[in-house]
Design a protein around this nucleic acid. Structure first.
Lengths: 203, 203
DNA sequence: ACGATACGAGACGGATCCGTATCGTAAGCG
DNA sequence: CGCTTACGATACGGATCCGTCTCGTATCGT
C-alpha cells in the first residue's frame, strides 16, 4: 500500500505497521461499497468504524479517500484467466463465463457500478481502475479474436475492437442494468453463438 | 409532481405553487448529477442552493430525496421515437443512433450511471426508473425484431430478448464504461451489420 | 380590499464528518 | 532492558446537512 512513497520516510525502528489493519480497512471499504453506500457517502470515519480501527490508523496510511480507493482497486487486481481451449469459440465462451461469474459476485458488480458513476468526474481514478482491472481482460479477449481471425474462425474484415464489443457488450449490459437477478446458466454460449452466427437467417 | 397526492389536501385558495420553482428544482438536481455529484452526496440544502430556492420550497413538494428523484426521472420520460423505415436493418440503426445520441448527452449518461450505482440498493427507485425510461424503448426494439422475424430478415430460432441484447449491449457498454470520448459516427451501422452478419466468415 | 397560501432567506438544535491531537497501551529493535 | 513507532479510542473546533420554524413579501381567489 503506497509502499515506495512511505518507505523512504518511515524509520525502521518502532512497532511496524499492522498488515491486519491494512486488510481490515480495505475489506471494510469493499463491504461498504457492496452495501451500496456510494463513494460520495463513504466517510473515513465510517470506514474506520466498519474496520474496527482508529481513524488515525487510516490517515497514517492514506492522505484521503481517493488514495485509499486507488489501493482498494489495486487489491482487486487478479490476472485474467488463461484461455486456450480447443477452439476460439470455446475460449470466447470461457471469457464470457468469467464475466458472468464476476457479475454474480456482488462485490465486483457493485464496485464496477460505483466506479462508473463516481469516477466519471475523477478521470485519474478511472484511469487507474481501467489499467488495473479492465485492460488486461480486454487484451486477453483481443488476443483470442486475433487468433480466430488468423485461423479462419472469425471474419477478417471487422475491427477487433468492434468484435470484442459485440461479444462482451451483451453480457455487461445484462449484468449492469437489467434486473439484478442471477444471469442464467447458458447465457455465455447463447451470446457467443448468436454473435458468431449472426442475426440474419443463413443460406 | 406528486399531483394526485397533494391535490386532495391543498386548498384552492391562496398563492398557487410556482411551476417555475418545480422546474428550477428538477433542473438543479439534473445539473448536480451531471456534474458527478452522486445521489449519496446530494443534499436538499445543496439542491435548493443550486436552484436558487428556499429549502422549504423543496420540502413543501417532496418529503425526501427519494421522492424528488422519482419525479426527476419522470421528467425525463420521452416517448421512444417512432421507427418504421424501409427495412428492419434501417430501424435497428435508427434505434441505436438514438442510444448513441443519448449517450453523448452528458445528462442522460450521467443519470444512467447514477441510477445504476445508487438504485442497486433501492429496488423501488430502480423499478420506477426501469418502468419510466427503459421499458418503452425496450419494447420498441422488440417490436422491430419481431417484425424482422416475421418478414424473414431475422432468424426465427433465437429468443427476441437475447437478440435485443446483442444489438443494444455493445452500444451500452461503449457509452457506459469505456473512455468517455464521443462515440464515433458510424458506430450504429457497424454494430447492426456486425450482429446481422455474424462474426463467422460466411460462405 | 382581504384572507390564504407560497415565496426566498435564514435561524435553530441536532447529527455527522472532517483532519488533528492526545491519551494509555502494544509491539517491534538493539 | 529502553527506545521508538503503531495501535484503538476519543476529544476537539469547524463544516455541512438535517427537517422545522419564523420572518417579511408576493400573488392568488373572492
Amino acid at each position: 500500500m503506497t509502499e515506495e512513497g512511505t518507505a523512504v520516510v518511515r524509520a525502521v525502528r518502532g512497532r511496524p505497521r499492522s498488515a491486519a489493519a491494512d486488510r481490515a480497512i480495505i475489506g471494510a471499504v469493499l463491504r461498504l461499497l457492496e452495501r451500496g453506500i456510494g463513494v460520495g457517502a463513504l466517510s473515513i470515519e465510517g470506514i474506520a468504524r466498519e474496520a474496527g480501527v482508529g481513524k488515525a490508523t487510516v490517515y497514517r496510511r492514506w492522505p484521503g479517500k481517493d488514495e485509499l480507493l486507488l489501493d482498494v482497486m489495486r487489491a482487486l487486481d487478479e490476472p485474467p484467466p488463461e484461455v486456450r481451449g480447443r477452439s476460439v469459440r470455446e475460449d470466447l465462451v470461457e471469457i464470457l463465463e468469467g464475466l458472468r461469474r464476476k457479475g454474480l459476485a456482488k462485490r465486483d458488480s457493485a464496485l464496477l457500478r460505483t466506479m462508473m458513476s463516481h469516477f466519471h468526474s475523477h478521470p485519474r481514478l478511472w484511469q487507474e481502475y481501467h489499467d488495473t482491472v479492465i485492460r488486461a481482460r480486454r487484451e486477453t479477449l483481443h488476443a483470442v479474436l486475433r487468433r480466430g481471425v488468423a485461423e479462419g474462425e472469425i471474419r477478417a474484415d471487422l475491427d477487433v475492437e468492434l468484435l470484442g464489443e459485440l461479444f462482451v457488450g451483451p453480457m455487461l449490459s445484462r449484468a449492469l442494468l437489467h434486473e439484478w437477478r442471477e444471469l442464467p446458466e447458458g447465457l455465455s454460449e447463447q451470446i457467443v453463438d448468436g454473435v458468431l452466427d449472426g442475426a440474419r437467417p443463413r443460406g
